[in-house]
């Protein structure tokens, strides 16, 4: 029996090995290489320890990037989670053929390549020829400088991220909703629970794991966002929309300081890794309790 189990786990390892190899080559090696790079000087000849990190944190422009990245990621994830939750409930209550049609339509933003859809948004927001402004003008309103002022630009990039990411939350929450046993709702109705009580005492607790994992995943991906800001604002106006990834690109690739670029891109790694550790620990603990 033991031999069989060992053979099965060996087979599993063999089957997983292509994926493990890919992860090692494309994720783990680049991560460690980036850590190594971040500890070199500009010419990549001398080891400087954590000097690059200390330098970056002391720069006001980088402090602004930290603020903007946190604002962007946290706001966008909250909005995506909320919208996804609402949409999932709406979808859950649509029955029959229409459900599939609506579900397909709502997934469209998520399946279009982000760079292409962001270009479309750029045409809508474009400083001089904005389709939104054209519509506003037709209705007798003044132009809005969507990308022309710092806060308008920040809200615009957040809006595009929410538009793109909300369907992912919707589909995950919809799957979670469908797995909640109907009997729980029936029992609650018999006990006289209101809709709000059913939401807070049945739906949300039953969806808790999926909510946590989705939020964590989305937070990591949103912190690493590059395309939207790069295409819509290039970090401007007045450096008001730079995120870690876009700033790392400017510092590392465009300005030829790869170690500092690596430093910028690694900045959130310890914070997100810690967050991931606690969230995943909570999820596993809860799974054990339920089992």
């Amino acid at each position: 029996m033991k031999q069989l189990a060992r053979r099965r786990s060996l087979a599993a390892l063999a089957l997983c090995s292509p994926l493990i190899l890919l992860i090692v080559c494309l994720k783990i090696y680049p991560t460690f290489y980036a850590v190594f790079l971040s500890m070199l000087d500009r010419k990549m000849n001398n080891f400087v320890g954590f000097d690059n990190f200390a330098f970056m944190i002391s720069r006001p422009s980088f402090q602004l990037v930290i603020f903007q990245s946190v604002l962007f990621a946290v706001t966008a994830v909250i909005l995506k989670a909320f919208l996804g939750f609402v949409l999932a409930h709406l979808m859950h209550n649509i029955r029959g053929r229409n459900e599939r049609v609506w579900r397909g339509l709502l997934l469209v933003p998520w399946v279009i390549p982000l760079s292409l859809s962001t270009l479309t948004w750029w045409w809508l927001f474009d400083p001089s020829y904005s389709a939104f402004n054209w519509t506003l003008n037709m209705l007798g309103f003044e132009d809005i400088a969507f990308l022309g002022t710092v806060w308008n630009a920040r809200l615009s990039v957040i809006a595009v991220n929410v538009w793109f990411g909300a369907p992912f939350f919707m589909i995950m929450y919809l799957a979670a909703l469908k797995s909640v046993p109907e009997q729980l709702y029936e029992a609650a109705s018999i006990d006289g629970a209101t809709a709000v009580q059913r939401l807070f005492f049945i739906t949300i607790p039953m969806m808790r794991n999926i909510i946590l994992i989705t939020v964590l995943y989305s937070l990591i991906v949103t912190f690493a966002d590059f395309d939207i800001v790069r295409i819509l604002t290039n970090g401007g106006p007045q450096d008001g929309t730079h995120l870690f990834a876009t700033y790392a690109f400017v510092v590392g690739i465009q300005s030829g300081n790869i170690p500092r670029g690596a430093t910028v891109s690694l900045f959130m790694f310890p914070i997100l890794a810690t967050l991931a550790f606690f969230v995943l620990r909570d999820v596993m603990k809860r799974n054990k309790e339920m089992a």
């Binding site: 001089s128 400088a145 022309g148 290039n234 401007g236 007045q238």
Partner: peptide, 21 residues
Amino acid sequence: LPADAQSWDDSSNNRALISGA
């Protein structure tokens, strides 16, 4: 300069000339 010049990129000036703006 145009009100939105602070958000222009490298293609904005080209478009501004070509469009006649």
